[in-house]
């Protein structure tokens, strides 16, 4: 009975989805002289970043990104509140095999370096703060998985997080003081396609990367702590 209703519902949704998107051709140029075309035409001159996606995420829609980071922070806080226990459960002492442990120990610094590379070069190559932060968190995850007693200091993590979040907001406020608007690009752009270019974009992406990395690590640690 339930399945029949579900199928009927899906048929209706599918019909209208198909009817709507049959009108939108695949692979055709749908940009007119509007937002996207203007980002592409004047993005490099106005923001200094050669990666247009980065310049949209960090500069044109920078305030949106601040809200996104806040949502991530709220989710991490909510998880910490829901899974809070006075006494953390004792995890079993059984470690992974020697091969896994040695491999994890060798790979861990390399993964961290890759993550830092990805978010420092966010304005030049694909990648940025969110990707780099996720890569750093997966490096910590490797350590959690192979060393059952591996611990991270939550005080240090929240210190990093606070520092990164505050510097994001401060950079925005500097734009309000010395520039025209919140998150205005006040630093010189430099030469495009070099590491020191694009004004405040790399600085903001470094802040976002540190924040996302420490937040996701804290999320994983909170969840793992409650597992036997």
């Amino acid at each position: 009975m339930r399945k029949v209703f579900a199928m009927l519902f899906l048929a209706i949704i599918g019909f209208y989805l198909f009817n709507t998107f049959a009108l939108i051709p695949f692979g055709k140029n749908k940009m007119n002289a509007d937002v996207a075309a203007s980002y592409l035409n004047s993005g490099v001159q106005k923001t200094g970043a050669v990666n247009i996606v980065t310049s949209i995420v960090v500069n044109y829609r920078g305030f949106d990104t601040l809200g996104e980071v806040t949502v991530l922070f709220l989710a991490a806080t909510g998880m910490g509140a829901l899974l809070f226990r006075k006494k953390p459960m004792q995890r079993s002492r059984q470690n992974a095999s020697v091969i896994v442990k040695t491999g994890a120990r060798i790979l861990f610094p390399l993964i961290i370096i890759l993550g830092v590379y990805v978010f420092v070069h966010g304005h030049l190559t694909p990648g940025g703060g969110f990707q780099g932060g996720a890569i750093i968190a997966s490096g910590f995850l490797l350590m959690f998985m192979s060393y059952r007693t591996y611990k991270v200091n939550h005080k240090v993590l929240s210190l990093f997080e606070t520092f990164a979040g505050t510097s994001f907001v401060l950079l925005g406020l500097f734009g309000l003081i010395w520039g025209t608007s919140f998150l205005a690009n006040i630093l010189p752009f430099g030469e495009a396609n070099t590491l020191f270019s694009a004004g405040i974009i790399p600085l903001i992406y470094i802040a976002v990367g540190i924040k996302v990395g420490s937040e996701l690590t804290a999320v994983l640690d909170t969840m793992l702590k409650t597992v036997k």
Partner: peptide, 22 residues
């Protein structure tokens, strides 16, 4: 490529592990 990198790091890595822990 930006979205591909995000999906690879977050969708394949972190989401799977969070589901596994749950």
């Amino acid at each position: 490529p930006d979205v591909a990198l995000t999906e690879a790091a977050i969708g394949v890595g972190l989401t799977t592990i969070i589901f596994m822990i749950a």
